[in-house]
Amino acid sequence: MIILDLALMLITAYFVGFIYYGLYRNITARFQRRIGPTIFQSFYDSIKFFGKKEAISHGWMFYLGPIIMATGAIMTLFFIPFFYQSESFSGLSGYGNLFLVLYLMLLGPLGNAMGVGVGGNPFGVMGVTRGLTRLFALELPFYIAVVAIMSISQSADIATIAGSQTTINAFAHPLLFIAALFSFVAMMGQSPFDVVGAPVEVYSGPASEFSGKFLSLLMSQSAIFSFAKLVLMVNLFLGGADGFFELLWKTFVLFLFVIAFGAIYGRFKTPQSVDFLIKVPTVIAIVGLIFATAWGN
């Protein structure tokens, strides 16, 4: 029964993730006063790459790199329950907790970094180094906010956190939500912090050596992974969801905010984004933490 549950979760994440990405391309097209492609354009792109006649590979570690990345993304998805009280769509979250999910989010990129390193493309390695440099900066405010949320709801299990929010955390603890949003924008690779694969600087970063089916695997896992992160943010800060419709509109609102935020700002340099993320959101998070713990108990 749990296998069916996992399969359903995977399929919903795959389709909803790609439809969100299609909507993203349409909305940014509208920002730029043009029509933009169909919503299913990302499906066509990834399936076309699956259909490529052949793909260049640099040895078995290169072959396994994207596979580990996809494994990391799918494992993160499995350990995040979609709804806080219903038994279905809870995946493996019964066996895991929030710390595990935080670390699983880092497993995929590290695995892919091995593949990129073996590929031997200097641009790929520079993209990975930029990603790892930005990683600890974006994780600091996120960890402070998450730790505060955990101590407020006295549990590290995502379902109980989502369920125990009488007034949703975004309004109960606005400072924590703002700090987490800053790092969420960076996590989704949106504009001021999209330094990893900046085409103008690093020749499309880590993905510059992957072609054909590896590239489509990377595309599909990024769709699944972004949906998993959206669901995690909804569970932590927007009071979880008890029905599919509520889950969808909450994740879409969050996604819309991330797109709008990204469309206004140009790209920071890596040290600048690290500097910014370590200063502004971290201070907000610490102040939020103090308020939360002082008022919390």
Binding site: R34, P199, F210
Partner: peptide, 19 residues
Amino acid sequence: TSRYDAERLGIRGAATPRQ
């Protein structure tokens, strides 16, 4: 870009020859 917009036909730029 905006005026002729090849993206509505599904045509998009790719940074590297691999893609």
